Computed example of a mutant assay.
Amino acid sequence: MCRWLAYSGSPILLEELLYRPSPSLIDQSLHAQMGAEATNGDGFGVGWYGLDTTTRSMPNTRGPEVPVLFRGVEPAWNDQNLRELARSTSSGLFFAHLRASTGSPVQQTNCHPFRHGRWLWMHNGAIREFGRMKRDLFLAIDPGLFSSVEGSTDSEVMFHLALTFGLEDDPVAAVERMVGFVEATGRRHGVENPMQMTVATSDGESLWAFRYSTERQSRTLYVSTAMATLRSLYPDNPAFVGLSEETRVVVSEPVGALSGVWHPFPESSFGIVQPGDDVMGDFTPRDP
């Protein structure tokens, strides 16, 4: 499977979470502890929204229409360009993904995150027996979106199905419809437990995260503790200085070794990190 991280809050350098904690996300590209594989070396990707227009630094403006992508097919631990980029690029909302292929080719168009307009999407997991269901899933994508599919992964198909089912208007309902459609398609093809996923998506203002699997044994997903609590626990830790109270990190697997920093997402749940109060709720697939 894969490892991923989504950050929302005060603008920071990407390297603060990609490289500096011990263990870091980059460490997980070689030594993941909670993934299906220890090594996640089939490419990587980072997507971010511009610092000067991110809502975290200018509260009364919308996020940029088009986020920036940097993706590569080398293992993340071996890419010097990623290291250079991370130490010189700041953002208040960014995604980072380490890929472990479940069968599709190692190529740039198959590396997460995926982008459509101002939306980013990344996924850990798989549609089981994707090859048996692929034709039906592809044909359900809105014709106006079909030409935007560049790669061959189940993850990108999931993204375009979610867009088809209304991601830009109601992300939670759209992802519930997407999963409901995949599960219904799986039943028609005799596929048992077709969906396994943790997903993050963003429009540059808010961040949505989902944890779900058909068999209710989903891959791990964690969210960071409220910043006020972290400062109380670690008053002398410089990592928390200057970060806003709304700063949150969502990860497939914890980064860093401090206790009390990470809380697991419940099984079959979603979370919304947004200006103001965050939201956590139950995730229930629905008939699209």
Rank of each mutant, 00 (worst) to 15 (best):
L145I: 08
P194W: 07
G63W: 01
T225V: 05
F114V: 05
P64G: 13
S213H: 02
L163Y: 06
P171H: 01
F44E: 00
D170P: 03
D282F: 03
N110A: 06
V68R: 12
L82E: 04
N60P: 00
V279I: 15
D282A: 15
L230D: 07
G43E: 09
S269W: 04
C111S: 11
H123C: 04
T284I: 12
N40M: 01
P113W: 04
R71C: 08
F70W: 10
D278C: 11
L120N: 02
S213I: 08
V68M: 10
A126C: 07
G45A: 07
G204E: 09
E183W: 00
S10G: 01
G271H: 08
D27W: 14
S224C: 03
L139D: 12
S213F: 05
T153D: 11
M34A: 13
D278V: 02
G256Q: 02
R62W: 12
C111I: 05
W121S: 01
G186S: 10
V255I: 14
R62F: 15
F210H: 05
V179K: 05
W48R: 03
N78D: 15
L145W: 06
P23H: 09
N60G: 12
R3V: 03
A100R: 14
M197I: 13
T55C: 14
I272S: 01
E205V: 15
S202A: 15
L30P: 03
I141L: 01
V149P: 00
A173P: 02
P171Q: 01
I272W: 00
R118W: 00
V279W: 09
A36H: 07
V273N: 00
N81T: 14
V66R: 09
Q108R: 13
P11K: 13
R20K: 14
I12Q: 13
G103N: 06
R231G: 14
L243S: 05
S22H: 12
A86P: 07
Q196R: 11
E15Y: 11
P285V: 04
R219K: 13
M58F: 08
L14I: 11
W48K: 02
F95C: 06
L258Y: 04
M133P: 03
L161E: 13
I12C: 09
H263S: 10
E176A: 08
M34F: 01
V241A: 15
Q196W: 05
V249P: 01
A86K: 11
R211M: 00
T61W: 14
K134M: 09
E65S: 13
D154E: 10
T220M: 05
G47S: 09
T61H: 15
A6W: 00
Q80L: 13
G256Y: 02
V149E: 00
P113Q: 04
A140C: 02
Q274R: 15
R188W: 09
G166C: 08
R219A: 09
N81I: 07
L145T: 10
F265V: 00
G190W: 14
R56W: 12
E74I: 09
L163E: 13
G72K: 02
D278T: 04
A184L: 13
R20E: 15
F114D: 03
G9W: 00
G50C: 06
D282H: 07
T89H: 03
A36P: 01
L221N: 00
P194A: 06
A76D: 04
G92W: 02
S268K: 06
D287T: 12
E156K: 09
A36G: 11
T61P: 06
A173M: 06
S22W: 06
T284H: 08
A226D: 15
N237T: 02
Y49W: 15
L145Y: 14
G47I: 04
D277C: 04
P288K: 11
